[in-house]
Structures are given as C-alpha cells and as structure tokens.
Design a protein around this nucleic acid. Sequence first.
RNA 1: CGGGAUGUAGCGCAGUUUGGUAGCGCAUCUGGUUUGGGACCAGAGGGCCGCAGGUUCAAAUCCUGUCAUCCCGACCA
Length: 571
Amino acid sequence: MRMSKLLLPTLREVPAEAEISSHQLMLRAGMIRRLAAGIYSYLPLGIRTLKKVEEIVREEMDRAGAQELLMPALLPAEAYQASGRWEVFGDSMFRLKDRYDRDYCLGPTHEELFTQTAINEVRSYKEYPLTLYQIQHKYRDEARPRFGIIRSREFVMKDAYSFDISEEGLDESYKKMYDAYCRIFTRLGLDFTIVDADSGAMGGSGSQEFMVKSPVGEDGIAYCDDCGYAANYEKAECIPEPKQSKEGDFDAEKIHTPNAHTIEELVSFMGAEPYNFAKTIIYKADDKYIAAMVRGDREVNEVKLKNLVGCTDDLELAEPHMVRELTHAEVGFAGPIGLEIPVYADKEVAMMKNFIVGANETDYHYQNVNINKDFTPAVVADIRTIEAGDKCPKCGRPVKTAQGIEVGHIFKLGTKYSDALGLKYLGENGEYGTVIMGCYGIGVTRCLAAAIEQKHDDNGIIWPAAIAPYHASVIPVNNKNDEQRACAEELYKRLADRGVEVLLDDRAERAGVKFKDADLIGIPVRIVAGKRSADKIVEFKLRDSDTASEVSMDEAVEMTVSYLKENGVRL
RNA sequence: CGGGAUGUAGCGCAGUUUGGUAGCGCAUCUGGUUUGGGACCAGAGGGCCGCAGGUUCAAAUCCUGUCAUCCCGACCA
C-alpha cells in the first residue's frame, strides 16, 4: 500500500477525550474515531487489525471443531422473553420497536438464539456434541462506557456455545475451548493469565477468565507465582490470618468516639490499629437488610456476600436513612450488638478478641467486644476481598495481586438455557435427555486495546507481528531523490512478492514525519532507503528494538521474512 | 443513578472573572526554500463560541433550562 493513497489521519496531539494509552494511541494512529459515547468507527488501519484478530480466532475455533454461523444482531423480544432475560437485562439492553409497535432489541449476547437453533435443527443424540460460534457485533447500553474500546456499547465478540449430552462431554468441550483460547491469545501475542472466576447466579460448575494484566484493567486478580494459582477477587478464597489481639477476659465497654465515622478517624482517635476494629456494613439484599462484618483493615467482597446470602437481584449498600432506622445511629456507628438483622461475619472476625465495634449509637463504640459473648453472628464465612501478601489458598505462600483486562471468558452453563427453553435430545433408547451447555466468549475488539496496553512506548504502538495492520514499512528518506525512490520501490515490490504486507511511505513528507508515523502506528519492521540507496544498502530496524543495521536489499528482504515467520506470521 | 469537570475551527487550547470587531499553536490549501526524527518564510481558507430561551443598546462572556462528552463511584451475561 502506498501511504500517499492511504486514509491514515494520524494526530500529533492527544485528544482530550482519551485517558488511557490504548485509547489515545488508537485515536492518534488513525485507527478509530468516536461517534458517540462508547461507539466507534474503524478507519482502514483499525479494521485491518481487527480482521487479523478475527481471522486468528476463526482459525483456532475451526481447528477446535467449532462451526461458524451468524445470528442477527437485531432480535425480536420473544427470543429473550422465554428465558426471562428480557427483564433481567434491564437498562443495559438496547430496545427498539418496529413500525407495528413490536418489541426488538440489539443482541447483548446470544445464548437464547443458539439454544433455539439447536432446538430447531438438532434432534438426535447422534448429532451431539456440537459447538457453534459466531463473530458478531454485540450491543450493551453500559451504565458507563469508558476507556475507548475496552468498555464500549457496540463491540465485536466471538461467542461460542457447546452442546453435550453428558457432563463428561461438557468437560471435553470445555477443555477444547480452553485449549483453543490458549492458542488464540498466544498467537495474538498477548501475555495472559487464566483465572478462576465466579459462576455467580448463573450456577454452573466452572468458569475461567483469560486476563491480560494491566493497571487499567477493571478486574482484580490474585495470583501465586509459586504454585500457579490464579483467581479473580470474587473467587479468590481468603485464608484467615489472625492478627495479634488483646488477650484476657474483658467486658464490653461503651466508649465516647465523637465524629469518628471511619476506621481512619477511629485509628487516630483511639490510637489503635485498624485490625483492632471490626467494620459493620449494612446492605440491602433484594428486599431484606443484612449486616456484614470484616476486620477494620479488610474490604467486603460484595460478590462473595451476594452468593452467600443467595440474593437474586441486587446487593447494594443500604440507603443512609435505612442505616439510621436499623442502627438508631448515624452512618459510621453500626455494630453487631443489639442489631436486629442477620449478621454475616468474615472468618477473620470470628478469630478476633476484645475488639472494637460500633455501638449503634451516634458517637459511641464498644471496645473489648467478643464474639458469641456479646453477639452471635448468623453466619461466619469468607466474605472479604483478598489482598496482596495474603496466603495463597493453594500453597500458602504470599499471593500477588494485579488488575486485568478480561479478554476471554469460558463457562460451563449446565442446563440453565436448555431447561428454560426446552432443549432436549432423543437418546438411543428413545428417551429424552436435557442438553448440557457451555458458553465461551472473546472480546475481539477489546483484544486490540489489550495488545496496545500491553506493549507501547512514548512513540506509539508496538504491535505483535501477527496482528499488525501492516508487517513492514519502507521509507525513502528523500522522496525527490531518484535513487532512494527507485530503491524503495524495488524493495516494496520484492517484499510484496514474498507475501509481506508492506507500506511504502511515498508521501511528500520529511523523513522525521515518516519515522514518527511509522512508530506511532506500530509497524513491526522498518526499512529505510537512504544515502546508500544507489548501492542498494538499506537500514533495517525493528519497532521493538532501538538498534538499526545497514544491510543489503537482499538481506533486508530475508531478515523481514524470517522475523515475521518467527513471530507467527504466515506468509 | 450519585459526585466532579468540560463543551470556542479537523486536533490541542486561550478568551468568560470585569459584556463591546473571536484569537493562538498544530493540521489544511498556494508559492518558495529545505530534506535522517513531527522544517522555515510569505500568503490563504476554515467558527450558529453545544443547543434553546431570557437579561441588555450590545452576550462566547450574565441568568434559566437542556443536550453532549470525560473522570470517580454504583452497575456490568
């Protein structure tokens, strides 16, 4: 491709709308443009990269035995009404009506449609197992789109669904997808971590997420370098770690703590440590109210608590007026003693002695409180969020924590949708059985952002060769110099003949501009035709390296080809 | 949905406090000089100052409303 003809509107300055590196760089590199909040157009460079990711996903899904099909993105309401998700999705579903006032939506995910397809098209046990997938646009009216294409309202997802007639079959289908995902993300050049994830209200017997570690990731993960354990915060089991308590038998004693609402304020007011306190937090779980207790230096994990309580709808902090009504005190002075709602205490709280809690009276706390003497929790369980340095639940060594971008999620669904929609197979003895499903997603567009977040520098993107929009860039330093131009043209042709996707920067720009753009858009190989062009000596440089070498044109071609092949490019 | 911020040329911003001809840098176009890391000189084009009301002789500027965008939080199969 001649860059003089390429629609490549690079930006020198960082658009004000972009906060994180990948978003800034995708805008500056002329890959995407924002049309509305969370809705993006893909310019030539962007769609080129996106297609490369899609193609790798497609190849590996096909290799794993999955079959591609394509569902509509525009869906009638009935598709979701039978499963109940027309209501469940709530505001996050884009809804619309046709001219006859019938309800439609833009598909946020397609479990129902694939299940329905199996119902319509498959009858016999002989036709299972079956795994189907599509690469399709998804629509979710996110409460808060952000970070460019990392959380957008329209995005490309590969979603696959497996159908089996036994649990063992599901395990096999799941494993195939797991392996395919490993190959996909490896080929994409992503450094990923697989974590155990919460199955949550979906039930099911297992779920894992593929994460790219990044400070801008929206999910917290805990991992252990020693034994390989990895889980997201919702799933990571916390091993209680007793902290030194005040020993001895004391009676609970009310103390005056004016204006001390938070642990920090209490710590400075009383001169105690955060772990001498137990926080009591009032939650609203569906229509009930409950109290959660964790040690003062810990945080409640709301997903764990939600699963424990078994609430189906939302678990959220209680409104301040309800806190006042339930505790008879201002927010910040809640405690377990005399509280009339169930208390869910973290395991660590159960190990504490003579600790400090709110007194359910404004400006008062109790000290020397002891569990089962001064109050009895309804449930003792793991409800806190794991922290760096906590014991690894598998090997006991300290875990590390990181933020991760979720690029893939695989899930054993079980029979949730086949039960709801009536997906059965006819078995070999004429009996009916319920089909067991799995679902498997990859955030295709998100992978682009993850790759950029993972590898870039001050000058721009550093693409993994396998998904770079072009493999190589040939730059004649001075476009008006006939020898340089001829050398670049020849190199351009020879690389293209070898199957290399090559850009020729034939623009009437100064060398500096061409170098800056090549770096910004992250082309892996750069070959410069400069002063020695007459002798067919050119400069070879990799984007991911700061050294350049002068080589013959022949060598430059071979070096390019072998570099690309070594990095997963099929020429 | 709660909190905060911002809307002025394609992009980045100043101007708003104290109302009085709409500016700067980059980008774009023309001519010339340059040519190995975002050149220089000269010239040119480009604006419903987010939108709608209101106050005023006069509104980018003051008032009211509204819309949009971004950030923090809540939410996220």
